[in-house]
């Protein structure tokens, strides 16, 4: 155990942190699924408004996705930029 360098420890922990950050993908997944389900129900009730419903759904899903993308950006930064290495 004693031959782990400081740099290696930080890189390993950054990788674990990046993996944990991607748990943020759960929320948008559920939210987008609910939005798509309701959109499908709405198209079923009113097939004439399909294009309006689709564009509204896509817009809402894109906004709901933001939090997941923050997690993704955090993971990318943790792995590739590894800002914590500079704190050594």
């Amino acid at each position: 155990m004693s031959n782990i360098t400081n740099e290696g420890l930080i890189l390993a922990c950054s990788a674990i942190g990046a993996g944990l950050a991607l748990i943020a993908g759960i929320g948008p997944g559920i939210g987008q699924g609910i939005a798509a389900g309701h959109a499908a129900a709405a198209v079923g009730r009113n097939p004439g408004a399909k294009s309006d419903i689709t564009s509204t759904m896509l817009l809402g899903q894109a906004v709901a996705e933001t939090t997941g993308l923050y997690g993704f950006a955090t993971a990318i930064i943790l792995i590739f930029v590894a800002p914590l290495l500079g704190k050594l």
Binding site: A62, E65, T66, L69, Y70, F72, A73, I76
Partner: peptide, 13 residues
């Protein structure tokens, strides 16, 4: 920030 991160994140992923 969210506009640019959304585009960047999706294409980057």
């Amino acid at each position: 920030l969210s506009l640019s991160l959304r585009l960047f994140g999706n294409v980057m992923s």
